[in-house]
Design a protein around this nucleic acid. Structure first.
Lengths: 201, 201, 201, 201
DNA sequence: TATGAATGAGTATTCATTCAT
DNA sequence: CATGAATGAATACTCATTCAT
């Protein structure tokens, strides 16, 4: 009759709590004690659920990719036009600016980590990444991978500028600026796509 | 005064040597001994020129902003058309992909650092940033700040994708992909600008 | 009372399983989890039967002393001559070289433990030790305690050399060498005893 | 103009200070902080001279073997008869009972360590060990290796009994007992050797 | 009786920093 | 100027032990 705890469930719960912590302090700087404290458990418990700091980090990256990216895209509203769908995505990103800022920081951290330590199982991340791109392509109903990539580039760049903006201004991202840039990009794509129909399905 | 010049000269020399080091291991993970070793000096000497690790980091960010961003844009070739100038910029970024990847990673680190430690003099960075944007606007001869921002967003996103690509594939950025995306973006801008002339000077 | 018997029975069973574990890793290095795993039980169960790690160790030493030393000597064959009896003992030790190597290591560990922690009830060990010596004297039919001690010294030294040998050569103890040394010692004792009859009963 | 310290000299000095510490608490139980404190330095300094705890331990074993065993045997007095030389050795061991007790404990610890961790360079120890035996053979002027081994077995067993004695009685080794056993052994060897002259050079 | 989740002090080791030379 | 020895607090991680189930 052991203490009844759904080990896996609790592990994922803890994992979710780690995003803020890693995003705020970064992989290299945050300590296990800080993580444990942030999660409200002891270091011993943390190690009961995760074998190492690196493992937490890797599992977190994986979990976020899998759960959030596909999940959240599934919740996206239906829209009849490409413009509407692009708008929906941009709105969605805007509503979750902080979340995606954190995730971007996490990914860059991840880049440094893997880049340095060499031997890591990176394949699973690649797959998740591809799935994210496929989901986006699916939702937008764009078959040309180049255009999908362009949208991703734009969204990444947008998030990055928000991060920089937060550093310089210590303010929340500028709504007006965000929408101005989004509209500009959407208009460009729509406008361009009307003259180069091969871009769309 | 000659001594001071030498001292300062050497300091900047050391500083330049730090970019690779910080970019590869990240601010949080690299140690002063590793930096010293990477520069070929003793820790004592390092502390003779810089009061702390944080100081090196901050000075490095500043130095790179001041020197490189504006400097390198000044070296860009003249081009009669907007398309040519955009092309020149994209080519330039492509030729220095590694450098800008490192710098992007450095900036994200910087974000975490300042975000966490609160009290830092960030103003000088803001100014440098504005100067970089102004330089870009100047070179492109675009007066609409929105469009300049869009170009920056695109370039940032592009670099970020290169970083991600390096993680997944362990390869140098894909030349063909890079150019495909660049052309798409440039064509969109050109195409769009021909129908919305208010965008250009 | 049957419950208590079962409890005690199981406790001793677990105890016997601990010898290998303690002997291989040493008291200081082995962990309770390793012991539990080695015994095929949970840490909780281990603590159900033993109040602490130290307790397991002490009980193990006691158990081994009581049970094995006297027990095994009792199983020794009858022999009419001193030479035969010495031979029987040496053969017995040789057949159980591994066991006695482990026990010797255990005793040295015990020495460190008690030596450091000061307050332990060591008296029971002293008694067991005396009983072992008495048993040996009895079996050999030697009344001179000095000669009994000499035999014990020789046996201890022999085991120790086997341990060293195992470290250097990573091989099982050398049978030929073992017998050569035993014969030499036995001959010396016999030879000496014939000229100094006061040594024997 | 660095701080002038003879790195190697100081390292060996620290090493010598470690014998008592390791012998008293054992490799597995002693902590680096305790070692540092016992040596009167900081943990940082300790790690400046030794890369790891294991390294200290291994270097200590090597250092003691090399320096002490051969050194101290060299200081042994000349003696015309085998009896005199055996006496000299026994006296020497007796005078350094504590030292050799510690060393024996150290060796048993070493056995556990190497036995467990598998891959260690043990060869150098084997060589030192052989040198020690050769030195002993040389001094005793005994050419029969079997007899040399017997002496070593006797000495090891003697030390071991002293250790056990210390546990039970909490007293210094019993001088009378030590000499009684020594005399018995010496007489046996002498007596035996007079009838089996092949044992000597 | 048996389990294994939880704890937090403790472990080996690292690190930014200082300072005697 | 330059060195690298010295420091001790901090880090990732472990461990004996407890206790709810």
């Amino acid at each position: 009759m052991p203490k009844i705890v759904d080990h896996d469930r609790y592990r994922k719960e803890l994992l979710r709590g780690c995003l803020d912590l890693f995003a705020e302090r970064g992989y290299g700087s945050i300590t296990m004690r800080q993580i444990a404290k942030g999660l409200g458990v002891s270091t011993g418990t943390l190690y009961h659920y995760f074998p190492s700091k690196e493992s937490i980090f890797m599992q977190l990256v994986q979990e976020l990719c899998e759960q959030d990216i596909s999940n959240f895209f599934a919740q996206a509203p239906e829209a009849p036009t490409l413009e509407g769908r692009l708008q929906a995505i941009v709105d969605f990103v805007f509503k979750n600016t902080q979340y995606y800022s954190q995730q971007l920081v996490l990914w860059v951290d991840f880049f440094q980590q893997t880049h340095t330590d060499s031997d890591h199982d990176i394949n699973f991340l690649r797959q998740v990444w591809e799935r994210a791109r496929a989901t986006l392509a699916d939702y937008l109903q764009i078959s040309d991978p180049a255009l999908v990539d362009l949208v991703m580039i734009f969204l990444d760049g947008l998030i990055l500028q928000c991060i920089y903006g937060r550093v310089y201004d210590h303010v929340a991202p500028d709504t007006a600026w965000f929408h101005q840039q989004s509209q500009l990009m959407i208009q460009m794509i729509i406008h361009y796509e009307q003259n180069f129909p091969q871009l769309q399905t």
